[in-house]
């Protein structure tokens, strides 16, 4: 009842306001334009940085060997030293230099030939996984740490997915809640 009356009041007030401001309608447009400009100029309340990746490659610091060893442009690339790497990605990824840059071994090469660092490896992944790249950009995909306000850090793709074997392995679930003492288990026939 009160909801209805308050809505009616709001409607009536809006009507009165609309009639009163009818002659000033022309002023409204510049005011909203300046508001839009102010909104564009305002500082973002939320800054999301992508967690750094460069300098974290400990197992195989690339340039320790690859300043002397040159690229083997052979398909599939024979892997002699990188024995821990198992490749289970898309079918075309059988050669290291599909993604790694032959000119600078501690960098990655986009399909366009542009060289990017490990920090921007999401650009490389995003070439094929465009949908995920979009979700990553708006914050719908990828873990964020730090807090919901101010500056936060977003994990890069390879922080969670092994780039050579991107499908995440199955894990053991933590224990379920205790089943109620007098509960009745769902049987296959009854609820399925």
């Amino acid at each position: 009842m009160t909801d209805v009356t308050s809505r009616l009041t709001i409607l009536a007030l809006a009507l009165v306001a609309a009639v009163a401001s009818g002659c000033q309608r022309s002023d409204a447009a510049p005011a909203s334009a300046s508001a839009a400009a102010a909104a564009a100029a305002r500082r973002p309340t939320r800054v999301i940085r992508i967690a750094r990746r460069e300098g974290k490659v400990r197992e195989y610091p690339c340039l320790k060997c690859h300043d002397k060893i040159t690229a083997v442009l052979q398909r599939p690339t024979p892997i002699k030293r990188h024995t821990a790497i198992r490749i289970k990605h898309f079918k075309g990824a059988d050669a290291c230099y599909v993604c790694h840059d032959t000119r600078a071994m501690n960098r990655l090469a986009l399909l366009s030939g542009e060289s990017v660092g490990y920090d921007a490896s999401y650009e490389l992944c995003g070439q094929c996984h465009g949908e995920k790249r979009r979700d990553f950009a708006i914050g719908a995909h990828g873990k964020l740490v730090g807090g919901w306000r101010g500056t936060a850090y977003k994990y890069n793709c390879v922080d969670c997915h092994d780039p050579h074997h991107p499908k995440r392995a199955a894990v053991n679930a933590l224990p379920p809640p205790p089943f109620p003492a007098r509960g009745i288990r769902k049987s296959r026939g009854a609820h399925r």
């Binding site: 199955a170 894990v171 053991n172 679930a173 224990p175 379920p176 809640p177 089943f179 769902k186 609820h191 399925r192």
Partner: peptide, 12 residues
């Protein structure tokens, strides 16, 4: 209603 909250073991 057909969901199960008491699952266990390897997921997903």
């Amino acid at each position: 209603e057909r969901g199960d909250q008491y699952y266990g073991g390897e997921v997903p």
